[in-house]
Every structure is written in C-alpha cells, then in structure tokens.
Design a binder for these strands. Structure first.
Lengths: 348, 348
DNA sequence: CTGAAAGCGCTTACAG
DNA sequence: CTGAAAGCGCTTACAG
C-alpha cells in the first residue's frame, strides 16, 4: 500500500511482463502483440502510472525542452511572437523555457553557454543577430536552432519582408505627394545588435532614390531611447528643422506613438500637417488609428516553432529560409501632403 | 581523444579521486579537504565539465524547474508580472517554464495534471482562482505553490490591495464632486474565473455607500469582450443613458482606452464632460495621460518568485500572505465635475 | 513478439 | 576527509 509514484517496474510486475515491454508500449513501438499492449495500457491506467521525465531524459539523452531566447519580453512585438511559439509547442511533448535578454551580458550567456549545457533539445532565437563564431559553435555542438526575425545563411529562419515593408510605407507616402519623408527608429547600434532597422532603412533609401527624391541625412534620426520617449524626442528634432518633413516613418509603432504625441504637443495636425506611419501593427495601432505596416507576428512564432519541431522530428539538416509577407494598413494618420492637395495632382 | 561530453567519471579519473568526491565539490559539501577541492575544480575547468541535468534530476528527484501558469500571456499586466518572475528566477539554478492559459480546458489541464507529472519543483499561478479540491490535491501531491494576484488561505500568496485601489479611485472622483460614477470591467463570470473584478466592485459599492451616494445597477456594466472593444461598448451604453454618468471607473486600463475612444467618437470632452479612470497603469496609460490606479506588477512577480524560492530552499510549510500597496496616479482624464465647478464647493 | 541486462550520469548513505 | 557501491527509472540492443 505504498503511496509512492508507481514506476515502470510496478507496471511490469502487475501486467506480468518485462519492463522492456512496458517501455515499448509507452513509446508506441510497433512490435508488441495487441493483447499485451492492451493489458499493459490497462495496468498503466489502473496504477495512474506516469513515466519519469528525468529517467527518460537520462536514458535517451534528450531533454524534451525547447529554449527560446527572446529580448525585451515585455514589448508587444516579442510577446506576440512568443505567443505564436507557445501555441505550437503547447500541443507537443516539449516544454518551453523562456530566456529573456535585456543586456549584452545576458545575450552572451544565453548564446554562448546555454545551448551547450545539454538542457535543451532545440533552440529558438528571436531578433538577435548571431556572430559567425556563435553559429559555428551552435552547428558543431549545439542543438538544432531556428532563427525568428533574423537571418543567417547556415541556420533555418523565418522572417518577414522588411524590405518590402519599408518600401510599401514609403511608396504610400510618395503616392500621397510627400517628398520630405523622414525615418526614425531606435539606435542603429543597439547593444543587442538588432539589425532590422538597417534593413528597413536601406529600403527607405532605395525607394526614395528610385523615385528621384533626395535622401537627406537630417531626415534620418535614431535614439537610444526605445519607444514612445524616443519617438517624441526625435519628432521634436525633426519638427524644429527649418525645412521640416511632411511625413515621418517610424520603424516601430511605439515610436510612432511618440511622434503623435510630439505633434499633439506642438499643435501640429495629423495627418493634415504631418503624416505618420508606423511599423508592426501592435494592438495599439488600431486604437490610435495609426497607419502602419503589419507584420505577421504570431505567425512568425508559429512558423519558427513548427520548423524547429520538424527538424527535431526528422533530424533533417536542410536549411530553410521563410520570408513572410507584410501588409500596409492604411488608417487615419496618413493623408495627401498639403502641397499635393494644392496641386491636386496624383504622383503615379 | 573522444569528443564526447566529459562525465563525472572523467573528472574523477583525471583528478585521481572517486566520483563521490567530485560530486561533493560540485555540490559544495563542506567535508572536502581544501587541496582536494582545488584539484577537482582545476580538472573540471580543464575538461570543461558540466554536470548532467538529467542525471542529477534522476538521482535527487528534483527537476530544477519552476512552472508558471499564466493566463493571456499577451496582456500587459501578465507580461509585467511574468517579467518580474523571470528577473528573479534567471539568477538561480532553476529554469522557468511558462504555461499560457486562454481556455478553461487549458486551465483544467495545467491545474489538474501538470503539477502531478513530476516535471516541476515549484509552481507559480497567476490570477487564476483555485477550487478547494485543486488546492487539496496540490497540498497533498503537488509541488510547493505560490499564488500571485489571487488568494487562498492555504497557499502562500502575493496580491496587491484591490480594495484600497478601487476605494482610492472612487474617493478621488468623489473629491472632484462626481456623484454619478459608473464602473465597468470584463465579465464578472469570466470563463477562467478571475475574481479581482468582484473585489474591486465590492469596494466601489462600499465606498459609495459610505459617502451616502446611491449605488445604481445601471452604472455597473460588464462585457465578455476584453479590452478596448469591450470598454467602448460599455461606454456607449452608459453615455446613452438618460441620466448619464459624469465619471467612469474602468477596472483595467485597456477598457479605459475604449471609454476614451467612445467619448471621442461621441464628441464628449474628457475630462470636462466625462472623467475617466483606469486600473493597472500599463505603459500606455501615461501616453494617454490616463488617471489610473497603479499596481506594482513586476514587483508582484518578483515577490511571488522569491517566496517560492524561499519555500524551495528551506522547505518551510508556513503560509505567508503578502499584500502590496497600490497608488493613485492622477493624470489628465479626471477633473472636477461640471456640477462641482458650478458650485465651486469642495466635497471634503 | 518479449525478457534480462546493461547503461545513461549523477547523489548519497556506508564504511573506513 | 574519501572511495566503492547501490540506486534513481527509464531505453535499447541482444538473444531468443
């Protein structure tokens, strides 16, 4: 009448079989007679037997846990991605362990130590760029790894199309007759190395050039300060320029908020006097009626997790790169530029 | 020249000791000669040895992982709490596994199965009420459990003071001369059973009664729809009442947003014609200049995690209940009621 | 199809 | 202070 958790031995004894057989039915091995299988299952049920995770780990040298390294777990973009990841992992035998990174020190630890501790079977890395040596380490001794919102040729990844996103934003503004278009974002030299801003910035420039609009340095501004505060700061700078922009493209929605706030404070009408466009389409954007570029945030998480699960299931070494489309969501913060309205001429 | 991960045997051999000794220095046991300890440490360093998590688990029957059951991982409140939890767990030997609950089905699984699978050493439950039988199960067979933003007499918990929070909000409005004060929130019968709304509602009523203000049923409204949409819906109902309220207390900031939106749409001036007050003080609140009740969200997470760690460390059975203070943050969405302005008389 | 046995890599009395 | 050995609860060839 021991009330200890039953083990595989208890099941085997009661079912009158060897533990090997119990193990086989547990793992759905094909070579078990149907009658035996049923008897064992029956006993498992009766005993309320649950196999020990730890023992299984030790015997198989698998951990059944997936690690996800995610920066600034508190920002809407990352939360949404994480949610997508969680949705697909929850349905599997895997556990999801989250490692939040907010400093370079944490990043170093999680990227250089964690993967080699044998604590995880698979790794998901969100938005964090990898150095070549980290990738090599990972490939040599680390678990299968999938990148989300980042890219490296040697690692399976899923991203959204940042180039197209920025292009769509700019072309939308051009179509509205804007020519003095500024771009802002958090620092291009982020301590954690985020690279998407550069990608979007590049696209901003190329799009302007393509349309023969001068690319002005003074219209490109960056702030160490993330989010609203940063956006407000930069918008204030831009709005006090002699030739101030008629449109501001913020590389994330939170900074777009800051722009709106700065405009409000300066009594500048949006969208009449200033068009504002954001990036991400976090929930807030629709509330503020913000025109923005929508990224499939949860979907990126779901895809990333699914790709990792596939690798884990079939051990395939094939590197896959998925790039998800983005979408321009036109709301109330963009309108034809005053110049445009005066001339009443369509740009294209 | 095997490139396999070194085990405790490799260390023992190279250091010329038994594996027991290696284990002792690994676990900081006191009874090891200093010289021996140093030699072993040296070898561990040289070999880059890392003890196997799985083996340790199996031998100690501890898992070194803490589970946290959290509803709607995407909402600002929960994200902030989670971040607090993460901050304290990250510095320990424990892993943090997150279980996101969005349906009663998931709740049932995570509350009734997960704790008894031997996968976690400790459990944190956020905002989810427990039935008596769940608590008994937990106490009998489950891991040490700490409740965050919920209460049960038999389980250590940390909450903020919801009663005081609602009282402060209402008294602030009363002081401004408001008497027609409505309260809104997401449904009182939430599928996941959230109870804080009832607590705050109770305090709303008592506070009004205390001040001899009639408590009207039509001024208390609830929506299945969470957040902005729900808030907007309820605000529209309230604003179309014959005798419409001069102030609305939303039991969470997201719904307060919806109220602001409804007011905007109806061209009702906030705060002149309608005072609005929220709850939580999520980041957004300051952007929208929303008067609100600030809860120490991350701090609740930190406290909860710390309490759990303490239990895990000393095995204490003592049940502790912490209640953290909240704070009224007065911003721009509350002002004296027009009546008050007319009479120019202070309420107290 | 199935059982007996080795092995996964630790911890922990036990005996010295 | 330290070594040898048992034990944690599984999986997996191996032999039948």
């Amino acid at each position: 009448m021991t009330r200890n958790k039953p083990t595989i031995f208890d099941v085997a004894r009661k079912a009158g079989v060897g533990i090997g057989t119990v193990s086989r039915v547990l793992n759905g091995a094909p070579n078990v007679k149907q009658a035996t299988r049923e008897r064992v299952l029956q006993v498992i049920e009766e005993l309320g037997y649950r196999p020990s995770h730890a023992a299984r780990q030790l015997a198989t040298s698998r951990t059944f846990t997936i690690g996800v390294i995610v920066p600034f777990i508190t920002r809407a973009f990352f939360v949404e991605v994480l949610r997508g990841v969680e949705q697909v992992i929850a349905g599997t035998a895997y556990n999801l362990v989250i490692y939040n990174v907010e400093t370079p020190r944490q990043r170093a630890y999680y990227l250089e130590q964690l993967p080699f501790l044998g604590r995880i079977d698979g790794l998901l890395i969100i938005s964090l760029p990898l150095r070549q040596r980290d990738v090599e380490q990972l490939l040599r001794n680390g678990p299968p790894t999938v990148l989300i919102d980042e890219y490296h040729p040697a690692l399976t990844s899923v991203q959204s199309d940042n180039t197209a996103g920025a292009r769509m934003a700019i072309e939308h503004l051009l179509r509205l007759g804007h020519e003095r278009i500024a771009v802002i974002g958090d620092t291009l030299n982020h301590p954690l190395g985020f690279r998407i801003n550069r990608e979007r910035l590049g696209s901003y420039r190329r799009t302007l050039e393509l349309h023969h609009i001068a690319v002005r340095d003074e219209y490109q501004r960056w702030s160490e300060e993330y989010g609203r505060e940063g956006g407000k700061l930069l918008a204030n700078e831009l709005l006090s320029l002699t030739e101030r922009p008629t449109a501001i493209f913020a590389l994330n929605d939170m900074m777009a908020l800051g722009v709106l706030e700065a405009a409000r404070d300066a009594a500048i009408q949006v969208p009449q006097d200033l068009a504002v466009i954001g990036y991400d389409d976090i929930e807030l954007a629709s509330y503020l009626n913000l025109t923005t570029v929508r990224q499939p945030m949860s979907e990126m998480g779901r895809r990333g997790a699914t790709l990792l699960l596939n690798i884990l299931a079939d051990g395939s070494e094939q590197v896959i790169h998925q790039r998800l489309p983005v979408e321009l969501v036109i709301r109330g913060t963009t309108a034809p530029s005053s110049k445009q309205q005066a001339h009443s001429s369509a740009q294209e």
